[in-house]
Design a protein around this nucleic acid. Structure first.
Length: 113
DNA sequence: AAACTGACTAATA
DNA sequence: CTATTAGCCAGTT
């Protein structure tokens, strides 16, 4: 396990249930700057049943990022897990980042806004 | 070393 | 909204 991956996993584990974060956001919060792609790579080597809530990471478009060489099983699993946490998708498989995006500042506000 | 690839993102038309 | 372009960085061949 490389250090970078450990940092990324730690950050992903900080995403609360029912909320999502973007790859770039995770990279930044991990102090990795523009390494959004590395976040994806780190999550890619993760097993589907990992304790890391990888399903709470989506792309900047607010949609589940398509995997390469997959039948869509992982994407379907990700969506099911998010829906199970209360994240609701809009038509087109997209979700409202404005509603369920993980905002650190919101942790203190808790509903104000 | 060079080329290619990938669970990305922002800007532009 | 879609499509294209440019930037990004690490891993693999």
């Amino acid at each position: 396990m490389r250090e970078r991956e450990a940092i990324i996993y730690a950050t992903v584990c900080r995403i609360p249930p029912g909320r999502v974060a973007t790859y770039g956001q995770v990279a930044r919060l991990s102090g990795l700057g523009r390494m959004a792609r590395q976040v994806g790579q780190a999550l890619a080597i993760l097993p589907d049943d990992s304790e890391v809530p990888w399903h709470r990471v989506v792309n900047a478009q607010g949609e589940i990022s398509p995997r390469a060489g997959s039948d869509g099983g992982a994407e379907a699993l990700q969506r099911r897990r998010l829906e199970a946490e209360g994240v609701r998708f809009r038509a087109g498989g997209r979700l409202d980042l404005r509603a369920c995006a993980w905002e650190l500042a919101a942790e203190a506000r808790q509903g104000r806004g």
